[in-house]
Design a protein around this nucleic acid. Structure first.
Lengths: 193, 193, 193, 193
DNA sequence: CATGAATGAGATTTCATTCAT
DNA sequence: GATGAATGAAATCTCATTCAT
């Protein structure tokens, strides 16, 4: 397939951009360096993305899509709510540890003005699954009766924080597994009735 | 004071930089705009800070110093650990709500590559007070026996999360006070024995 | 040739730089003026030379290369040493008179701190031919038994001096020819046994 | 004397400027660095010299004046011409070796566009003594009957060249003395009848 | 599709010079 | 005289983007 090589180049560009953005920040990373790192010509980058901003947003969406794909894999609608939350929580942490660079990029993106370039509905979409889960938990009186966004915010912050901690301390896989499980129980204790 | 006017210009520059950095991000804010906003000549900025990067780091240190000054005011060494933690937690949240711009700047700075420009000991210094408090709590068997850094991470994340939530939802002062108190009890339940 | 137009721009830049450097000195010549004089965009200059300094050194090497190319053309290995020296001496003078701007640039470059940016081997390479010739003369007991570098210095100084004199007084071609011949006999008398 | 300290500062400025100009070139030496090296405030420099250019020219004149003072010390009007020339030649070389930095500065100045800022009569004045000497020699039929400027140019070039050679090779004082004497005989042989 | 030379607006930084103290 | 903070014009250099090949 001819378009295969094109897609490959696009992947190379995204990979290079991810690596360099995390390493040096958005603005300290010229498109020319991205192109060089990706092994393509300068202009090629602009065949796939009209502007640098477009590339940045596309990269974010790409990563979020890959994360979602990971999280939704296990169809576990039948499990009790706590187990569903746990699967979600642990899944997110594991993904973060296996994709540290992606994780760092998301973090940087979310506290940058680029976030505003994303359509609000796009942002909401990202957290839809989690929000639904929390809503379900509140209705079932398993979770505390507080605003959904509040519980979601607490959950997200803890996820970010724990991930950061794991990235910094780099425990053994066993210790990591244990810590993640414990973390969930602690957080669950905080938000459950 | 003779040096007053000089110091004033420096303050103006820091204020202008803070405002613009939060509004547009580090790189989308030219030094020329900072100078104009501060009401000083372009070169004056570089009289005080050799490079833009130096300004960014200096601004971070300045904010952190002001925050620390705020937190240490209340000498409450005699209170029980939980009360000390609560004072700390609530103090930080109040400061964050009263200094939203500063808070946003810190957030942006910490998830940017500029963080690496800070000497590690400088970073550590920032969290010294909190760490000591946690250590004390663990020794007194009031807090769970887990790594200090881990508990610190949980606390910090919670602080960040709640702040974010408050900034977004802008509740009434009363509701805000109630939410903050509740939040503390939640996180305290999570980390205390 | 496809690369012709690209090379042309580089040539234009070198020509413009040469002219302006000699006219106003290195530092009184902004890169913007060079670009304008060369008829290219400002950034184009930096496409070919990473820094202004790099351009200055490249220009020097370019001129020296062109001079060397001129000097080595006449293959006169069979002539007696004096004739070879004379050919060299007169060739250099003629080149200097036909390329006054280049000559002035070299002079300015060599008594500037930019000289230090040149690798020592590069500098040596420039005078290799002359040094070999002198060495040959000394071994053949045609030239005085003195350090090669010293004789080389005397010769070079003479060349510079005469060139300067010719550029200032601008004699008729005939008078110039006569003066050059006389000069050579004078310097030859000084360095030969 | 109060003006003593002022004069001292002026001297410090000239010394600092000399050192830095030779080390980095005219334009790569900011006035601020000169002031710092001289141990005076930035603005003080501009009390003594209205502009940087004025400082540069003043420094040149200062050095030339000091050189002239050196050269005219020995009043040897009674000596034969060759001896007067020799005294001049050797005096100049010795001065150059004892004042390498000054020598380098003069060299740099003379092949720079700053030379044009000097009034022509000022330039002529610098070489008046030498020119008179040469004229005298020609009239006395001791020197070749050639244009005075030509002989002067040859002499100057050789002086510069030999100085450069000595600065580069750094011979022992004895060897230096010997080489200088030999050089004079060689040059004298070249220009004398 | 892909390339990379070319562009030029704009960013950071420098620096001679001024001037209030 | 002496200071050094302040100035702002100007210099070097960067970089997103275009376009002819």
């Amino acid at each position: 397939m001819i378009s295969q090589s094109a897609t490959d180049k696009q992947r190379e560009i995204l990979n290079a951009a991810l690596k360099l953005f995390v390493e040096h920040g958005f603005h300290a990373t010229p498109t020319s360096k991205i192109a060089k790192e990706a092994g393509v010509a300068n202009g090629t980058l602009f065949h796939y993305y009209n502007t640098k901003d477009e590339l940045i947003v596309a990269l974010y969406v790409d990563i979020k899509t890959r994360l979602s794909a990971c999280m939704n894999v296990g169809e576990n609608g039948h499990l009790p709510i706590k187990e569903k939350c746990k699967a979600f929580f642990i899944g997110a942490l594991n993904w973060g540890m296996e994709n540290m660079t992606e994780f760092r990029f998301v973090q940087q993106f979310m506290s940058s003005p680029y976030l505003l370039m994303l359509a609000p509905e796009e942002i909401q979409k990202q957290s839809r699954v989690a929000m639904d889960l929390i809503n379900e938990g509140i209705k079932a009186k398993v979770l505390k009766k507080m605003p959904v966004e509040f519980i979601h915010t607490l959950l997200s912050s803890q996820l970010f924080g724990i991930n950061q901690y794991l990235m910094t301390t780099k425990p053994t896989p066993a210790a990591q597994k244990k810590l993640i499980e414990e973390s969930f129980e602690m957080v669950w204790g905080m938000i459950s009735v």
